[in-house]
Design a protein around this nucleic acid. Structure first.
Length: 388
DNA sequence: GATCCACGGGAATACACGGATG
DNA sequence: CATCCGTGTATTCCCGTGGATC
């Protein structure tokens, strides 16, 4: 448990009398340092990464698994651990990089391509993991950052393994693009593609992460619930039911648990009653998209989504919705409409055709495809956004 | 002054439907 | 009867603008 966590616990122990002790433990966007039940997968990842222990670069690796299987959780935990072990920590660098005998250093860089769409943002993300100086957020060209990266890695003893997570989602940095951007430093960098599928024309090694089995997911949810909720706030039967409902998808299970706890807490209850579970599950759409995708959007888009979630878009044409949302913000109807189309295109919203309303083209409506209760909570009281 | 990025607005294009045309 | 056309909407696309940062 790190300091932030300790403080958070104290704070909520004093602040509220609710059943949620620490929201982060229930959040689907926060990963635990020790993923539960993924031991074999970790082993297989380590097998693939084996060369690093001899000071070589590993081959390109793909980690693939269905949504909610914990691919992100595994890779973030793994990279954090390896980074500590193999001198990737920034402070260690500052002290060992001196004189002629340089100890080999391998950095383990995790890049979330949801938040790293542009070349500039990508270089910035990699670079700031590799150096202790702060990397400019603007005012400097993309070429400049690329040069800095090249300089940084321009020694035989320095190399990096870069994980590109969510490379196969719409509107994220693709794996191919990331490779292209890393081309100038290709000799010092290896990549790990993390996603639902392998990158196109894949020829590297692949580690498959199976969906959680029922009892594994029960363990995951139980551990989270015990850590995040007050003692005696839930019973094991309901967690088992929840795991059955989530069907191997940890994101969905956690999202529902989070929503459930939220509702119970707002109602001042001291237990997670079945009613709350029902509502909590109902707030997670079937075939849900990860809430992190909605949270990674820009400020304006997040606000538009929040407005939309708040007014339950039940079957209203997109034009009407846009007008409503626009009224509650500083945007024009036209702009909101365009944003809604864009969000639907990204898969964050689902578009449905409505029956024709007379003349002209048939209108459609949009509805959230992400867990709404979690989204609302995290976006309006942003804590740790889960950037890890 | 340079650079990146998100906005915003509107122009261009696609589609649905009914009625006219060959 | 098949196709074309006009009108009214819905949807997509493009590009200039401004804030923030260095």
């Amino acid at each position: 448990m790190d300091l932030r966590e300790r403080i958070a616990r104290r704070q909520s122990a004093h602040g509220d009398r609710g059943i949620v002790v620490d929201r982060d433990h229930l959040s689907p966007v926060v990963h635990r340092p020790q993923p539960i039940g993924r031991g074999p997968v970790l082993e297989r990842c380590l097998d693939a990464l084996e060369p690093i222990f001899d000071g070589d670069l590993p081959p390109p690796i793909a980690v693939v698994g269905p949504p909610g299987a914990g691919t992100s959780a595994v890779v973030t935990a793994l990279f954090a651990g390896l980074g500590e072990r193999l001198g990737g920590s920034r402070r260690a660098i500052a002290t060992t990089t001196r004189g002629g005998s340089e100890t080999p250093t391998t950095w383990f860089v995790y890049v979330d391509s949801r938040r790293t769409e542009s070349a500039f943002a990508f270089y910035r993300a990699v670079l700031s993991a590799l150096s202790s100086e702060t990397v400019p957020t603007g005012g400097v060209g993309t070429d400049d950052l690329r040069d800095r990266l090249r300089t940084r890695l321009d020694r035989p003893a320095r190399r990096a393994v870069v994980a590109i997570d969510h490379h196969d989602e719409p509107a994220t940095l693709s794996y191919g693009r990331a490779r292209e951007l890393l081309d100038p430093v290709a000799d010092s960098v290896s990549t790990v593609a993390v996603g639902v599928r392998e990158p196109a024309d894949w020829s590297g090694e692949t580690v498959s992460v199976p969906a959680y089995r029922r009892h594994e997911l029960v363990d995951v949810l139980t551990e989270r619930a015990s850590a995040g909720l007050a003692a005696g706030a839930f019973d094991h039967g309901s967690i088992r039911d929840l795991a059955r409902w989530a069907d191997g998808n940890a994101h969905d299970g956690l999202a529902a648990l989070f929503g459930t706890a939220r509702l119970a807490s707002e109602a001042g209850a001291d237990r997670l009653e079945p009613v709350y579970f029902e509502e909590g599950k109902a707030a997670v759409p079937p075939d849900s998209v990860h809430v992190g995708r909605a949270l990674a959007l820009s400020e304006t888009r997040r606000r538009v989504l929040l407005e939309l979630v708040d007014r339950e878009p039940a079957d209203r044409p997109i034009g009407d919705l846009a007008a409503d949302v626009a009224a509650g913000s500083s945007l024009t109807t036209g702009t909101v409409k365009r944003l809604l189309y864009e969000l639907a295109d990204r898969g964050v919203l689902e578009r449905r055709q409505l029956p024709s309303n007379g003349s002209g083209r048939r209108p459609s409506t949009v509805e959230p495809r992400f867990p709404t209760l979690v989204y609302r909570a995290l976006v309006s009281e942003p804590g740790d956004d889960g950037e890890i």
